[in-house]
Amino acid sequence: MSRAYRITVKESDTRHLKAGDEICTQLEILEILPPEDMATLLKEELKKRGFEEQEDGTMLRKDGELTVKVDPCSGEVSVKAETEETVSQEAKRDATGFNDVGPSEKSLRDRVKDQLKTDLDKKFEQEQSRLQNKATEQLEKHLTEIQPEISEVVNQVTREALKQKAQQMGTVKEISEDAESGSLTIKVEV
């Protein structure tokens, strides 16, 4: 007499998932002074804003999971978002077998285990995708926040460079700055 039986297999796994996103761009630094002087000005301005100089000469600042890196020599700036999480997932499947004709319990269990492995992989893929979206969203948000700061850095460096250039040209008689319009007037006696 044929008897049906049900087997239930459970699989669980824990994985450490990492996701990241990064954009690189070039700062618009005008060549008012020689490149090395412009780089020095940029470095100083970045230091004031919490950037730390690295061994390779680049300036780095970490804002939580986000890293902003500026190369003062080339003007290249990269903003990187990295996120990681340890994720545990569990999957469960049932299968029905028969004691007389049909696959044996062992082969049935192996087949279900393979299916569970695929299920787990899919779940981890979804988690990876979620983590990736999180990193990208963080990066996008941070870009919106950091853009005014970067623009201010560039403007400040340009202002300082213009002042130094004026000093090189002659005696600076008067400097007037309008913070609202961003205009800078320097009167030089040559």
Binding site: T25, E28, L143, T144, Q147, P148, I150, S151, E152, N155
Partner: peptide, 17 residues
Amino acid sequence: LEPLRGPVGGTPTAGGP
């Protein structure tokens, strides 16, 4: 297209939102 370009407080460029 370049992100982090534009005036202070300006709208983000195509690289960003």
